[in-house]
């Protein structure tokens, strides 16, 4: 057995034993490989070995770390096991609201409602209860409204590595342009007011890239 195989096996044990997706940095800290690149190779090897139709589990990078999860192809049997106990999918209103928060965070309720054209307070509550979003503080503006950001659970729910894993706004812009020849619809048109507990805001106004920064650890 090669050293790389052993390293991969140790990583496999750690990923299984960890409570949450375990970060590469954490794996490095525990395993102390001679070369950090060794771990990456070992993980890649491990991922490939699980990437086959005859395994029920696969290794994925999600929410900033590594975890094993069931292969979606076996959904039908899992559905039988849990029967009616699985959560219902999100409503369109919830998805719309979540999408706006994901791309424009941190954002206030009023801004969300304006973008959607409907009051979104009730939807926001559902999302808070499901822990897909959280309150990240208040905006230092009139009325000091609460600001919302997505959580780690959001990333897990949609199987995203981090927020940059979402399709970029440019891609959606192209889709919209193909249809209408529109400007980038989700580009903030004013510089955001100063935010509390929202370091991503400064970067957003600085560059034209979409405002996609991994949110701070979820609470």
């Amino acid at each position: 057995m090669e050293d790389l195989d052993l390293l991969g096996a140790a990583a496999e044990a750690l990923i299984y034993a960890a409570e949450e997706p375990i970060t590469t940095a954490e794996l490095l800290r525990v395993l102390k490989p001679e070369q950090p690149a060794d771990l990456e190779r070992a993980l890649e090897q491990l991922r490939e070995s699980t990437n086959t139709a005859v395994r029920g589990l696969r290794l994925v990078e999600v929410a900033g770390g590594w975890r094993f999860e069931t292969r979606p192809e076996f959904g039908p049997v899992i559905e039988v096991l849990y029967h009616d106990k699985l959560r219902r999918s999100l409503s369109r209103a919830a998805l719309e609201t979540l999408a706006i928060i994901a791309y424009r965070q941190p954002i206030t309720l009023q801004e969300i409602s304006e973008l959607r054209g409907v009051d979104s307070g009730a939807v926001l509550r559902t999302l808070l209860e499901r822990r897909l979003i959280r309150i990240a503080g208040r905006r230092e503006a009139l009325g000091r409204p609460l600001i919302y950001v997505t959580t780690k659970e959001f990333l897990l729910y949609f199987g995203l590595k981090d927020l940059t894993d979402l399709p970029t706004l440019e891609e959606f812009q192209k889709l919209a342009e193909a249809q209408e020849g529109s400007p980038n619809p989700f580009q903030p048109d004013t510089a955001p007011a100063q935010e509390t507990a929202a370091p991503a805001a400064a970067e957003r106004s600085a560059e034209r890239e979409p405002a996609i920064e991994p949110p701070a650890e979820s609470g």
Partner: peptide, 30 residues
């Protein structure tokens, strides 16, 4: 018009998220 275009782009994003949600529904962690 701007609002309509925004709304249209939002629908694309929603569709994308919906696809991910369905795909991820049975990808369960330990």
């Amino acid at each position: 018009v701007r609002q309509l275009i925004e709304h249209q782009a939002l629908q694309e994003i929603v569709q994308n998220l919906q696809g991910r949600e369905q795909k991820q529904r049975f990808a369960l962690g330990r």
